[in-house]
Design a protein around this nucleic acid. Structure first.
Lengths: 332, 332
DNA sequence: GTGAAAGCGCTAACAT
DNA sequence: ATGTTAGCGCTTTCAC
């Protein structure tokens, strides 16, 4: 038994043929007689031969692998995006290399560099935020697709949720239910999606002729203690909000925890979540179609890999309002 | 500007040195004068040179990458495992290639084969279930670590939750609260974790001198309609269960949805989940330490890569009972 | 300290 | 239909 992994030459020797014929067989090139092919296939099985991907890549500079770079794969939206992208990639015969950035710009840059070194055919990037100018130099020749968020400084294909439209629809639903004082709970304004959703919230208020009241806006890391204080403040204010719009799932989870027994406010949440139809008698949500985002993103990337050289396109995936609980039954 | 990516020779020519010196610099081998090193580093930056990983791998047969094979990355436990493994890998200077099997044995096999072809240094496998005998042939020479579940037919390092102990503790907590009729809700008995947790449930009943009543056991895909029927059946039975033990998060979510207004039964769930302290006034859970599992698993694998040749070890990561709601206040 | 030669395993181009 | 030669970009070995 050989210690090192068998090579194409070992197979050729075992089968008693030239090694190029083995190459022809493993690449399904044809021009090999049936008799020879069968002999070679037998030898391949006998030696348990498997082609060395590195040698192949070195020759062809095509890895049949794409990179997926995101802040945290444990975050539900990102893991669902990854799953959708992987599924398309697998259909295309490619594998996915996932690297996490923990929302750190230098790690993001290093991750991309490493992937380029590894000759990935393309990259799907969920940017941490901030500039991605560095891509122009580093990812020269490697197609990059931006997913879920935009980065500044570089035009590239992108697939995003209709954050603004979805948030506007959700807010408008609360307006339609008769609310005029609607509070906004979201994460820091530095986050792309949060800014877009805030814009949608504002737009819906403007549309309804409601003045924006900054005292009803919470935009910071949604931490239970701070949110509890904020709710307490609202509750005791002379003119408390009668409804809440939550701009992301973490905020929603924290909000539901912090809200305690204050059962007054109606709630609309951006992003669907497990137990949304159980908690508080059902929570109305603006659901993102995460699966479609990942799928369309991957397909767009593979179209580039297939040679599509058109100018960068941005796709917006629409959201859906899912009405639940009291809000589902109230006037629309 | 060159069209093809610059190589070590381009850098050497640009710097006016032999190309081996460039190799020495990028590999930090020393034996290069400072003057030369600086000149070379300047050229590297000027040409935007990045080493070709494939060529390197071909020479050294070390990829500094490991494979992560799991059924579905969108599943919360698996994405958290992936995150923990990636974090350790990144610390070790390795990247993670993730492949999904959708719980299909042949895809699992193909995934491993592809990773071995790509010369990954090691593999973390969350087995779909069933035999992994094939690994003996395919993954010869590539260390494999089993995570979260065992596969049959091959001794390998493994890191698992203390499923049996955790389920026993959870069940015992219900017994301590005075319950004698405790129903079990879990997924199919073909799933490794579900079988172990069922064993723990049984063990706790035996310990308490309670006879196992098969009519109180639901072991199938937790689908809302079927579960609702099951609950209805239990509710109307002459001697209904007074408490429920749920053996995985999907079952718990479905259960909470299906349970409707039947507020009687106490509930203990295996696996913590968001909103666990909100829903039904707080749900007591047996929490897995998913992060530790992934971390310990990755560390075990890297120890193998570092040359540890001892016999396979199985690590059990303990679970923690988190008491919430009524159960937290009842007799223990 | 530096450089030239050889070769990792494979595929592309060219024989035969 | 089959085999031979060259070389992908790098590291290893061995000279100097």
């Amino acid at each position: 038994m050989l210690e090192r992994r068998p090579t194409i030459r070992d197979v050729a020797a075992h089968a008693g043929v030239g090694f190029k014929s083995v190459s022809r067989v493993i690449n399904d090139e044809g021009h090999v007689s049936d008799a020879l092919r069968i002999r070679i296939e037998t030898s391949i099985a006998a030696l348990d031969y498997r082609p060395n991907a590195a040698a192949r890549v070195l020759r062809k500079s095509v890895t049949r692998s794409i990179g997926f770079v995101c802040p945290e794969i444990a975050e539900p939206v990102q893991s669902r995006l990854a799953q959708a992208v992987e599924t398309v990639a697998a259909d295309e015969g490619s594998t996915l290399t996932i690297t996490l950035t923990h929302s750190d710009a230098s790690r993001e840059r290093a991750a991309i560099e490493s992937l380029v070194s590894r000759q990935v055919d393309g990259i799907v990037l969920v940017p941490a935020g901030g500039s991605i100018r560095y891509l122009t130099r580093i990812a020269r020749g490697v197609p990059v697709l931006l997913l879920d968020r935009l980065g500044s400084g570089l035009p590239a294909d992108a697939v995003l949720s209709d954050n603004t439209g979805g948030a506007a629809t959700g807010t408008a639903r609360l307006v339609a239910a008769g609310h005029r004082r609607i509070a906004f709970v979201g994460d820091s304004d530095e986050l792309f999606t949060q800014q877009e959703r805030y814009d949608g919230y504002c737009a819906a208020l403007v549309d309804a002729g409601i003045a924006l009241d900054q005292r009803l806006v919470y935009r910071a890391i949604p931490d239970v203690r701070r949110l509890r204080q904020q709710l307490e403040f609202w509750r005791r204010s002379p003119n408390p909000p009668t409804a809440l719009f939550s701009a992301n799932s973490v905020a929603t989870m924290t909000l539901l925890e912090a809200i305690g027994d204050w059962h007054q406010p109606d709630l609309v949440a951006f992003d669907d979540f497990p137990l949304a139809d159980v908690v508080r008698g059902g929570v109305t949500v603006v659901a993102q179609d995460v699966d479609t985002m990942g799928r369309v993103g991957a397909q767009t990337l593979f179209r580039r890999l297939a040679g599509d050289g058109g100018s960068p396109i941005t796709t917006r995936v629409s959201t859906a309002l899912i009405e639940r609980g009291a809000l589902a039954r109230s006037a629309s």
